[in-house]
Design a protein around this nucleic acid. Structure first.
Length: 108
DNA sequence: TTAATGACCTCCG
DNA sequence: TCGGAGGCCATTA
């Protein structure tokens, strides 16, 4: 695996099934860097403009909150994309987060 | 809410 | 050209 942490994050995020979501810590943990949860968000910021683009809207914080929605354009697009995939978002939070949660460390 | 944390990016020497 | 330090952040507890 000569890929960087970045690219590994991109890959996992792109593997997130439609209608599912995951958390930064889950991705980081699957890469063996559970303490680097912040880095995942950092990588995503680059990934948002990477090619191919990653479904960053499927990645939320540990509480299922769309903390990074303000980084989208427009910010409301994030929850709109989620709802478009069958994910219910209420008050910037993913409903039934635990139910639709997709853990790469388990699914993979 | 505040403090701590881990890795990336940019800048200067 | 290479090295080191500081700042930044879509987090977590």
């Amino acid at each position: 695996m000569g890929q960087s942490f970045y690219e590994q994050v991109y890959e996992i995020v792109r593997l997130i099934p439609k209608g599912r979501v995951t958390s930064y810590v889950a991705i980081a943990r699957s890469l063996g860097a559970a303490k680097s949860s912040r880095m995942v968000g950092y990588a995503m910021r680059h990934g948002a403009e990477a090619h191919p683009p990653v479904p960053a809207h499927r990645v939320v914080n540990a509480q299922g909150l769309l903390t990074g929605k303000f980084h989208f354009s427009p910010p409301e697009m994030m929850e709109q994309l989620l709802e478009n995939e069958g994910v219910t978002v209420e008050k910037d939070k993913v409903k039934d987060f635990k139910r639709i949660f997709w853990d790469p460390a388990v699914e993979l």
